[in-house]
Amino acid sequence: MSVVDTGRRTAVLQRVLPSGSYAGMARRLVERSALLYARAWMVLLSGIFEPLFYVLAFQIGFGALVPVVVGPGGVELSYVAFVAPALLVASAMNGAVSETMSMFYKLRFDGLYDSVLATPLGTYDVALGELTWTVLRSGLYAVAFFGVMATMGLVTTPWALLLVPVALLVSMAFAAIGMVCATLLRSSAQFEYIHLLVVPMFLFSGTFFPVDRYPLPLRVIAELSPLYHGVELARTFSVGVLTPSLLGHTAYLLALTAAGLYGTSRRIGKLLLS
């Protein structure tokens, strides 16, 4: 993106957002997070292994019990090929939620955002900077996971290359909503409420079996989950069967991202500037 395009985007956002909430300097928070994790690189590395163990477990264990599953467009898949794309986006969800929950400590205990808002950065810069870092971190995991899938022979179509952008989109949506949740929490004990939502989403959003097997009321609830839309995108691209529904899934996740960014900016302003 050229300097001119960046300047135009900044000018548009400054007109749309409340005065003083955006200075076009969100990258400063990204740089801070990168420098911080440069000293804790083992934390980043550890997040790669969990999804790897999941894939190996399904390859060695469940794959022998469920030899064939019908995927998008009626394509027959091995069970590990059915589950792997969903695990990729689920790992993006887990990484995003974990990272944004750290925002609670930055907000309530570290006083980081009080210091940040004393600089030219505004509340929307904070929200965008935290979102960008979370997406970058999730992208690292997604690329590593995709490499494992390719090594295991689970990448069979060029469309599967879009699995990484899908993971980034899922990370964006969960990071944006997660940041809003972080601003609403009053104690770390309330993290249990977040887990109470994330764990059922992981299990019942089509990650391990199609949601069309559910009774209609449960299917409707499952289809409201952001992870469901990410799973559908990933699984569809993994087999190379493109349908118009992909646009709807993408729009849903983008809408959540926009709503979360705006909500986070407003909440930080209410908590620290009011």
Rank of each mutant, 00 (worst) to 15 (best):
R137P: 03
W133R: 00
A127L: 12
Y124D: 10
T134P: 07
P120S: 01
T134F: 04
Y113A: 07
L117Q: 07
V143E: 02
E130A: 10
L140A: 11
T119E: 10
T134V: 15
V143G: 01
D114F: 05
F145C: 03
T132E: 07
G139D: 09
F145N: 04
T132I: 06
T123H: 13
A127E: 14
S115P: 04
Y141K: 03
V135Q: 00
T134M: 07
F145G: 01
G139M: 03
D110T: 09
D125S: 11
E130K: 10
R108I: 05
L140K: 03
L117I: 12
A118Q: 09
P120T: 01
T132C: 07
A142P: 04
L136V: 14
L117S: 13
A144Y: 11
Y113D: 13
A127R: 01
V116Q: 05
L121C: 12
D125E: 11
F109M: 11
D110F: 13
T123V: 15
V143F: 03
G129C: 04
W133S: 03
Y141C: 05
L117N: 02
T123P: 09
R108M: 06
E130Y: 06
R108Y: 02
L121P: 05
R137W: 12
P120C: 04
D110G: 05
Y124E: 12
G129V: 02
R108V: 04
L136C: 08
A127M: 14
F145D: 07
G129H: 00
D110M: 12
F145H: 04
T119A: 11
L112Y: 09
S115D: 08
V126I: 02
A127Y: 05
G129Y: 03
E130H: 06
T132G: 06
F145E: 00
D125G: 10
L128R: 14
L117W: 07
E130N: 12
Y113Q: 11
V116P: 08
R108A: 02
R108G: 02
V135P: 00
R108D: 03
L131I: 10
T132W: 08
A144V: 15
Y141R: 05
V126R: 00
E130D: 13
W133P: 01
A144F: 15
T119C: 10
L140S: 08
D110V: 09
V126A: 02
D114S: 13
T132H: 05
L117R: 01
Y141A: 13
V126Y: 00
W133E: 03
Y124P: 06
V143I: 08
S138Q: 11
D114Q: 14
L117D: 10
F109N: 12
D110R: 13
V126W: 00
L140V: 15
E130M: 03
F145W: 08
L112K: 07
A118Y: 08
L131Y: 08
D114C: 05
F145I: 06
V135H: 01
D125R: 00
G139Q: 02
L112R: 09
D110C: 06
T119I: 10
R137E: 05
L112C: 05
A144H: 10
S138K: 02
S138N: 11
L136D: 03
L121M: 15
F109W: 10
G111Y: 11
S115W: 04
Y141W: 11
T123G: 04
E130I: 09
L136S: 06
A144S: 14
A127I: 08
L121F: 11
D110Y: 11
A127H: 14
T132R: 04
S138I: 13
D114E: 15
L121I: 08
